[in-house]
Protein backbone atom coordinates (compact mmCIF):
# COMPACT_ATOMS: atom_id res chain seq x y z
CA UNK A 1 0.00 0.00 0.00
CA UNK A 2 1.05 3.55 -0.59
CA UNK A 3 1.70 5.59 2.38
CA UNK A 4 0.83 9.13 1.61
CA UNK A 5 1.77 11.85 3.99
CA UNK A 6 -1.13 14.21 3.57
CA UNK A 7 0.07 16.96 5.74
CA UNK A 8 3.59 17.26 6.87
CA UNK A 9 2.96 20.67 8.35
CA UNK A 10 3.31 21.30 12.03
CA UNK A 11 0.27 22.17 14.11
CA UNK A 12 -0.21 23.63 17.56
CA UNK A 13 -0.07 20.18 19.18
CA UNK A 14 3.56 19.91 18.09
CA UNK A 15 4.53 22.85 20.29
CA UNK A 16 6.33 22.32 23.55
CA UNK A 17 5.42 24.17 26.71
CA UNK A 18 6.66 27.74 26.47
CA UNK A 19 7.39 27.50 22.75
CA UNK A 20 6.19 30.14 20.31
CA UNK A 21 5.21 29.95 16.65
CA UNK A 22 3.39 31.83 13.91
CA UNK A 23 -0.06 30.69 12.84
CA UNK A 24 -0.16 29.56 9.22
CA UNK A 25 -2.92 29.25 6.65
CA UNK A 26 -6.26 28.02 7.95
CA UNK A 27 -7.73 25.38 5.72
CA UNK A 28 -10.40 23.73 7.80
CA UNK A 29 -14.07 24.56 8.12
CA UNK A 30 -14.04 22.86 11.48
CA UNK A 31 -12.09 25.64 13.13
CA UNK A 32 -14.73 27.48 15.13
CA UNK A 33 -15.29 31.07 14.07
CA UNK A 34 -15.14 32.08 17.71
CA UNK A 35 -11.50 31.06 17.78
CA UNK A 36 -10.72 33.33 14.86
CA UNK A 37 -12.62 36.12 16.51
CA UNK A 38 -10.45 35.74 19.57
CA UNK A 39 -7.43 36.46 17.39
CA UNK A 40 -6.37 33.05 16.11
CA UNK A 41 -5.52 34.24 12.59
CA UNK A 42 -2.76 33.60 10.06
CA UNK A 43 0.33 35.61 10.86
CA UNK A 44 -0.39 36.02 14.56
CA UNK A 45 1.91 34.64 17.20
CA UNK A 46 0.88 31.66 19.33
CA UNK A 47 2.54 30.48 22.52
CA UNK A 48 1.77 27.23 24.32
CA UNK A 49 1.51 28.44 27.91
CA UNK A 50 0.50 25.24 29.68
CA UNK A 51 -0.86 21.79 29.05
CA UNK A 52 -3.64 20.52 31.30
CA UNK A 53 -2.87 17.54 33.56
CA UNK A 54 -4.25 14.84 31.26
CA UNK A 55 -2.55 16.39 28.20
CA UNK A 56 -5.74 18.13 27.18
CA UNK A 57 -6.88 20.94 26.76
CA UNK A 58 -4.09 23.33 25.79
CA UNK A 59 -3.61 26.75 27.31
CA UNK A 60 -2.48 29.22 24.66
CA UNK A 61 -1.52 32.81 24.30
CA UNK A 62 -2.61 33.98 20.88
CA UNK A 63 -2.14 37.57 19.93
CA UNK A 64 -2.17 38.60 23.62
CA UNK A 65 -5.39 36.72 24.31
CA UNK A 66 -5.14 33.83 26.74
CA UNK A 67 -7.45 30.97 25.93
CA UNK A 68 -7.71 27.23 26.09
CA UNK A 69 -8.79 24.84 23.36
CA UNK A 70 -8.94 21.09 23.01
CA UNK A 71 -6.27 19.03 21.32
CA UNK A 72 -8.57 18.06 18.46
CA UNK A 73 -9.09 21.71 17.53
CA UNK A 74 -5.42 22.56 18.04
CA UNK A 75 -4.56 19.82 15.56
CA UNK A 76 -6.34 21.78 12.81
CA UNK A 77 -4.26 24.91 13.19
CA UNK A 78 -1.08 24.94 11.15
CA UNK A 79 1.96 26.74 12.45
CA UNK A 80 5.38 27.82 11.30
CA UNK A 81 8.07 27.65 13.92
CA UNK A 82 9.88 30.84 14.65
CA UNK A 83 13.54 30.73 13.83
CA UNK A 84 15.62 31.64 16.83
CA UNK A 85 16.92 35.15 16.64
Amino acid sequence: MFKIILNSMLTIIDLKKGQKAIIGEMNSDDIPLKLLEMGCLPGNEVELVQIAPFKDPLYLNINDTYLSIRRETARLINIELKVDE
Binding site: M38, S68, E72
Partner: peptide, 10 residues
Amino acid sequence: KSYFVVEMPD
Protein backbone atom coordinates in the same frame (compact mmCIF):
# COMPACT_ATOMS: atom_id res chain seq x y z
CA LYS B 1 -18.42 18.70 16.59
CA SER B 2 -16.25 19.11 19.61
CA TYR B 3 -16.05 22.78 20.18
CA PHE B 4 -14.39 24.26 23.18
CA VAL B 5 -12.90 27.73 23.41
CA VAL B 6 -12.44 29.22 26.84
CA GLU B 7 -10.91 32.56 27.57
CA MET B 8 -8.45 32.46 30.46
CA PRO B 9 -8.97 35.90 31.97
CA ASP B 10 -6.52 37.76 34.16
